[in-house]
């Protein structure tokens, strides 16, 4: 599940120590924008020590590296890849499939050098430019390592030569495009952060909107945002009850050799069953198939 992926500043020992306690599904240890230029070296060392010895609970652990257009990204990868705690890297400013391939190749070199199965490290791509959004499907399908694509917020808005509004009008099309591209390529669409950390009602509204678009979850910049987003993404009691009924009826029908079946007067076919199973996965009542 990737309902919430919490950013932790890579040079902040306090947040790196306590980050997993806030209950997000994933963590993003940030070596990029949250770290000042003069502290890139110390943050990289600190994050490496945490990956080696730190505590992350059941969180999916990723590191946001610096962009491939900087002098830092290869050192970032070399520092973090060797540790089993790391499940993926979040790559900023991915504009096209070629960027994914460059990172993929470098990951393979480092994995091989460290005796790690090649392909273990996943890539979470941040699409922060108009070009990146336009190339979303190519990016999402550029490597089997790609686990998710994520639209940028601030950078993308700047590239579009507009500004961020409370309604999110400027990101509307990019979000829809990103969901289509991700689903078509079989990767997760994960949303950008909600920047107004004290606006709970605004966060809830935006999360309801992006859930309806088809997003799998959202990036998070403040721990207080986690329960609100989980609350929106978690299935309701009624949804769970209905899903249980559908899955049970489908199982019974299959045992009797029947295809379609009716539940509460509604025809239940394969897509409905799949959706019900997905609801139960999100409720923690069914293992991911």
């Amino acid at each position: 599940m990737r309902r919430t992926m919490l950013y932790l500043p890579g040079n902040n020992p306090n947040m790196l120590t306590r980050g997993y306690l806030f209950g997000s599904d994933g963590l993003v240890l940030d070596l990029e924008d949250a770290v000042a230029m003069a502290e890139k070296d110390t943050a990289r060392i600190l994050v490496r020590h945490f990956l080696r010895q730190g505590e992350f609970g059941s969180c999916e652990v990723t590191v946001r590296i610096n962009g491939v257009d900087t002098e830092y990204w290869k050192d970032d990868l070399a520092a973090v890849i060797p540790f089993p705690a790391l499940q993926g890297i979040r790559a900023p400013k991915v504009d096209d499939a070629a960027t994914v391939k460059i990172i993929d190749e470098e990951l393979s070199i480092i994995e091989e050098k460290n005796g790690i199965p090649v392909g273990r490290t996943k890539i979470f791509c941040l699409l922060e430019t108009a070009k990146g959004i336009w190339n979303a499907y190519d990016i999402a399908s550029a490597s089997p390592r790609v686990a998710a694509i994520i639209p940028g917020g601030e950078d993308l808005t700047a590239d579009l030569k507009t500004s961020r509004s409370s309604e999110g009008t400027e990101l509307d099309w990019a979000r829809r495009m990103l969901v289509f591209a991700a689903r078509a390529a079989g990767v997760d669409p994960i949303d950008t952060v909600f920047p107004r950390v004290t606006d709970d009602a605004g966060l809830r509204k935006e999360t309801e909107f992006i859930k309806q678009l088809g997003f799998e979850g959202k990036s998070v910049i403040h721990p207080n945002q986690i329960p609100i987003i989980h609350n929106v993404f978690n299935p309701t009691e009624q949804e769970i009850e209905k899903a249980l009924k559908i899955v049970a009826a489908a199982k019974e029908a299959a045992e009797r050799g029947q295809g379609a079946v009716s539940v509460d007067g509604r025809m239940v076919d394969i897509p409905v069953v799949k959706r019900a199973e997905y609801t139960l996965v999100k409720a923690g009542l069914l293992e991911v198939k």
Binding site: P13, T17, D41, T42, I45, L46, R48, H49, Q53
Partner: peptide
């Protein structure tokens, strides 16, 4: 600072 942090900061300072 926890052990992890102390180790990282010493390493960073020496590398610098």
């Amino acid at each position: 600072a926890l052990d992890i942090v102390l180790g990282a900061r010493v390493e960073a300072a020496v590398k610098r």
